[in-house]
Design a protein around this nucleic acid. Structure first.
Lengths: 188, 188
DNA sequence: CCCGGAATCTATCCAGTGACTAGATTCCGG
DNA sequence: CCGGAATCTAGTCACTGGATAGATTCCGGG
């Protein structure tokens, strides 16, 4: 019995399992006790690492913002196109659903967590950094308004797709997102 | 004691209370027992009308789609502008948060409920009925793509605003939404 | 090598919730 | 006014989140 009194990396294991469960069945169906069972530890073990359920989801959201920021800046460096940053946003939402479904639901976690705030701010920085080219394309537009429009477009597409409101595009979501985004970001 | 064995209109009362609670503290914090207490009935009474929690939220979502469809078509008739239909979408999300937060979270309710499906289809009909003018404005665009873009934009703006990601526009959300939408729907 | 504190996990307990069931009460049409 | 239908109550069970006390293991200094 003594071989596994300590799990080794329970924090990581619970985090991974949480993201998986959320991706499959939504954030509402995640339970600390279920994750504990899945990891083979007692039902109170996760609380040591995360405090409570909100703490776990805070960690999920923080990691998610970190991943999103990384993917957005990678897309920006790779393609140099603000449109492709938007496409990368949608791609993240669809391929990292477990994170995405938590990140934009502040009632599920502690939005004032410092680590999370930092990750979120860094991501926003990347998102808005490409605004110059966009506001050039739409001369005279307030860059803040243009940024919000861009964010709204890709965010809305992502959420609508995730909850099954875009059935006609379910086969090639990424290309559909690119077509949709092109209507707003006319530049390639 | 006998004076109020029957509540009178418990179904309506629970529905109203549910929408209020959701608008204030999110769908996660709604409990059948809490709503029952609020209405002054036993904890099992709501189950008679809604079956279970998913049934209650199904009713919320169905009523919400009905309201949204009505407001969208009203905006269309009143202004004749597709842009104003989009603004009405945002206005609905902000003023009927209790409904909106449920409607686009199918994991919370029974998405195959016939009454709900009908209400949702009717709303989609209104949403897409103004597409002709939009695709005229953007010549050559696939009307389906244009419709998805429009829906994505207003939906994304609404959800981002609701979860506190657009702090700079919190004072005059409706006018901000109009500015944002104008970037996509160039016609007035 | 070993000792003691720190890190990690277990075992219990409690309150709140959703769901189910049997039964009580009231309403309403014939 | 009577009997079935509609509505609500009361009780139960399994599950969850949260809290606490204590057990086990790890690790660095002597």
């Amino acid at each position: 019995m003594s071989r596994s009194y300590h799990h080794g990396d329970l924090r990581r294991a619970v985090l991974r399992a949480a993201v998986e469960v959320i991706a499959e069945t939504g954030p509402g169906s995640v339970s600390l006790r279920g994750l504990a069972r899945r990891a083979g530890v007692s039902h109170a073990a996760p609380a040591y690492h995360f405090g409570d359920k909100a703490g776990l989801l805070t960690a999920v959201a923080a990691e998610g913002f970190g991943l999103l920021g990384a993917e957005l800046s990678a897309a920006r460096e790779r393609t140099g196109s603000f449109l492709e940053v938007g496409v990368a946003y949608v791609r993240f939402a669809l391929t990292h659903r477990g994170y995405f479904e938590v990140m934009f639901r502040p009632d599920l976690y502690r939005a004032d967590d410092p680590e999370l705030s930092a990750a979120r701010a860094a991501t926003a920085e990347v998102l808005y950094s490409g605004l110059a080219s966009l506001s050039d394309a739409r001369a005279g537009a307030d860059p803040r308004v243009a940024g919000v429009a861009a964010w709204s477009l890709v965010h809305g597409f992502s959420t609508l797709w995730l909850n099954g409101n875009l059935p006609r595009f379910e086969d090639d979501a990424e290309e559909a997102a690119r077509c949709v985004a092109r209507l707003l970001f006319q530049d390639g």
